[in-house]
Amino acid sequence: MSSIVSVQGLTKVFPGGLKALKGVDLEIEEGEVLALLGPNGAGKTTLISIICGLTTMSGGRVTVGGHEITRDFRAARELIGLVPQELHVEGFEKVINTVRFTRGLFGKKPDDALIEQILMDLALWDKRNEKIIELSGGMKRRVMIAKALAHEPRVLFLDEPTAGVDVELRQSMWQVMRGLKDRGVTIILTTHYIEEAEAMADRVGVINHGELLLVEETGPLMTRMGRKTLTVDLSAPIDAVPGPLAARGVELGNGGTSLVYTYDTAAEQTGITDLLSDIREAGLHLADLHTRQSSLEDIFVDLVNGSTR
């Protein structure tokens, strides 16, 4: 597998001194879907903006399709489609005209059949002659996606494509993304929704404070993220975890007043039923119990602290 996008030692220092990217290395394979996750201000948009030519880099090297993005910018950018995070539209233009405009801007000959297909796929065909200002927010976002697709990019950057989009539309966008993936388009998307990464991505990258903390296959990462802890508060403190419970990996918490059990929600058997009967057989009395999903934030914190559970 060859990388279609290669990022090496990429740094960005904004005027004013903020280090938005601190040496990012990332290889993106042709045809894959990569989801970039990370809290607000992590540097996701900055990374995408540099690759697409909207922001200048401070150091490092980026190639797209083997073309260095500043020296060989024409060849590199022809391959790229971008849907930025913010909604930017020319309100007084008709939908179809702005989509045609983008295609021309990227050096492609007019192709009305293709434009029609794209607008159909995004359920915008009926709106093609409307002014963009008259569309709803979700439709405007779809117009931006249509523009990004108009020149048949091989690499598509989607910066939070489903932010502020209703459930139904999100599903249909996922559908569009799958269609693109099937045609071999490489997709890099950022999102704050773990389900989205899970549903769409082959690999997930986690960025925080300008550092790429990990890039991993979605499956294993989700398993880790899918962990839950069950905390059982006891009515009286105990000194040690009784034998059968200890065998299940139960730990003592909170000075002996609670039992902590970590399990995998994705597993066939969570073991909770057995755990509860073991607790009863051990003669312990429950005061309360609660479960907690380890969240993306937990994973971030763990990663930042260098200890991955």
Binding site: C52, L54, P84, V89, F106
Partner: peptide, 12 residues
């Protein structure tokens, strides 16, 4: 309006 992003990211 921000649509300049397109021109800046285009192969021009």
């Amino acid at each position: 309006v921000g649509t300049i992003y397109e021109v800046l990211s285009a192969p021009v």
